Simulated assay, not measured.
Amino acid sequence: MIVRSIKKQIDKALYKGKVVIIYGARRTGKTTLVKAILKEQEQSGKKNYYINCELLDAKRSLETTNEKLLKNYLGNNDIVVLDEAQNIENIGLVLKIMVDTYPQIQIIATGSSSFDLAGKISEPLTGRNRAFILYPFSVLEIQNNAGFHETSAQLSRALIYGMYPSVYSLPDQEAKLELMEIASSYLYKDILTFEQIKNSKVLVELLALLALQVGNEVSYTEIAQKLGVSNHTVKKYIDLLEKCFVVFSLRSFSRNLRNEINKSQKIYFYDLGIRNAIIQNFNKLSLRTDLGALWENFCIIERLKYNQDREIFANKYFWRMYSGPEIDYIEERDGQLACYEFKYSSGARVKRPTLFLEKYKPKSFTAVNSDNWFEFML
């Protein structure tokens, strides 16, 4: 089993009098992770209890604000996992009662959608929780398990089939089938359930449009016209897709330099296997016309995983001028800028954005390619 890098951070957060919350898309391994944590805790002498909150019995028992009833259900356990906790009505208030009344019990709550769980816990649990995001596998996790040479050899496959745990080790045809299943049945489950969205066709078509625009700026107006819906609906659906960890956005960097693009954003996918399943394109890299977009998306999502693993907090942007010059990715940390351009081929020409470099004086400008990727991601 590949050890998840985030586990060491979660272990440090245990028994500090706070609820530990693990967010992440469905099928990214949250249940496997929490069960591994419980097993280790049991081996150290702790009593544990795993609760699947999708089961009706669990919902009935936990949907109460009666502290004695909650304690009876939790029992005399040291650590309790509430898996898929967003299914519990008033989950924020329930967790608040648990942590305030029984601080000796370590509660871990997982959620496959942040829009419902986070929305219900943000106010009740202010200052009472530590939140983590579980991504699909990272190249760092693969390297720690299989070594650098295996990780490097699998790089091109990751651009096609992604890094979902249930997909990573499968043969190509089985990987395709698994990704198609995830994309068709699991991907939108929380949105359709909790937001009661009836027009799933629009959601599917929106995802297809976003998948084809990876690496390009997104126009709500253009998408709305193509889908025959309002700008408001497009914004709402994209927001929900972000909160379900299907896509994420990158906003434009602008500090009033003349002709800079501002108030714009790009949309990327948390997993490229899902992105390719949506457009049903699993062609080899040598046959693809979207290799540049795949590489850009891959580099950025792996950088997000890298930063989380090292607990690096940075503002993230892209930059472009109306006249053409652009930078794929910018990180701002402690007032300093680091700029990156993504080109899959090490022989590809990289244009240095002279005006940006002269105006903002970033500490670095680096081209990340298939030869030096490890310096950016490991």
Rank of each mutant, 00 (worst) to 15 (best):
I108Y: 03
F137T: 05
L117G: 10
S166I: 07
I121M: 11
A158G: 09
A158I: 14
F115A: 04
Y161F: 15
D172I: 10
I133L: 06
A109F: 12
S114T: 00
A118V: 10
P136Y: 11
L155T: 04
I133W: 08
G111W: 09
V139H: 12
S138F: 15
S152D: 05
M163L: 09
T110C: 09
S152R: 07
Q173H: 12
Q106V: 09
L134C: 09
A153W: 03
R157T: 12
Q173T: 06
N129T: 10
I108P: 00
L134H: 12
D116L: 10
K120W: 05
F148T: 04
R157N: 14
E150A: 12
A146R: 04
S152F: 04
V167M: 07
L155W: 06
I142L: 13
S169K: 06
P165W: 02
L117H: 11
S152P: 00
A146H: 09
N145Y: 04
A109E: 01
I105L: 02
T126L: 13
L140R: 13
S112Y: 13
G119D: 12
H149N: 00
F132M: 05
Y161S: 02
I121W: 11
F148S: 03
L117N: 08
N129W: 08
P171D: 10
I142W: 10
T126Y: 14
I105D: 00
I107A: 06
Q143E: 15
Q106I: 14
